[in-house]
Design a protein around this nucleic acid. Sequence first.
DNA 1: TATTGTTATACTCTATAACTATA
DNA 2: TATAGTTATAGAGTATAACAATA
Lengths: 185, 185
Amino acid sequence: MGAMTEADPLPDIDWSAQGIETELGWALPVTYRAFSQVATAAVADVPGGPRGYQVLVAITTESPSSQLALAHRLGIDKTQMTYVIDGLEAGGFVERRPDARDRRVRQVHPTDAGRALLSTAREGLRDAECVLLRHLAGDEQTQLRRLLARVALGAGDIEAAADGAPPTPALPAAAPERSRRPSRD
Amino acid sequence: MGAMTEADPLPDIDWSAQGIETELGWALPVTYRAFSQVATAAVADVPGGPRGYQVLVAITTESPSSQLALAHRLGIDKTQMTYVIDGLEAGGFVERRPDARDRRVRQVHPTDAGRALLSTAREGLRDAECVLLRHLAGDEQTQLRRLLARVALGAGDIEAAADGAPPTPALPAAAPERSRRPSRD
DNA sequence: TATTGTTATACTCTATAACTATA
DNA sequence: TATAGTTATAGAGTATAACAATA
């Protein structure tokens, strides 16, 4: 809706010939960004966005956990975790309960509101996936999931090899959240 | 190498049960990040990283172009484009040639060194892809590429719908380039 | 007056360091 | 002395705004 409307989704470049190089280098980022966008929108109501959502998932589907354990599990810095939990607690979605045996640690428990929020966000994410894969037949979707899962499984080694083996992430990291200004260029 | 070595690549969470939610929400980010990492490494010698590479591809496989045209085509801000071209020109990989007919615009031409650099980077990216897909059989790789390409094609609409229809990207956007410090937590 | 390109500024996100309170 | 958590600071990356030159 900006000043220039001549931006067709797929420019008239002949990618296949020797274009931007291999198709994967194009398709993967595009797909990821689209998913990242809808997924972030789906968890927009969760304080802390994708990371807040990850925390809710972790303490709900597993058991309540200390902040440091959560940070390690989700691959988030412990200082970041403080902010995320702050937001969740301010919204009344989690509680910090001091551990009786070690009063340094604070266990993070989900509240009823937190569980409800998680449930809603989950649905939104499922819908987001459906939108993303809407052009694929049912069996094709299954096929894609399976193949991608296998690649991701092997990909873990790559990440691990590079730096100090960060734990497995689960959502689009952070999703920079493009500015919502009029975007006139 | 860090203080804690208990971080196994895949935690012992039962993702499949009701875990972190849908498999795609896990596999896609993981795969993307792994690719982003190897791809960024592959174009590390290109000033400006992935974006510098994109510029080289555009002006080589197509024709030399003005900076603004490049910015639009690659979905990069024009101010950012200035910096990217600055880096490429400093390295002797491109030349800015004033346009004879409109002396405001500066056409960006690749040098021989630029073409050579592009060639090398291309090989690196192809290798990166092979590494990423190494656990898939040949026909499975083809299948994955095909399915992903179709999803990406449809995904363009999603991105376009959200903000002002940004042109098609071609590489992992920017790839934050994790800090290379000892990573002791 | 509008547009290409550059420069300067501000903002967001994240990483690092320093501090407290417990152990 | 070491660890869990918090707070403060600094850095990278990006977006916005203001500017110069040309049309």
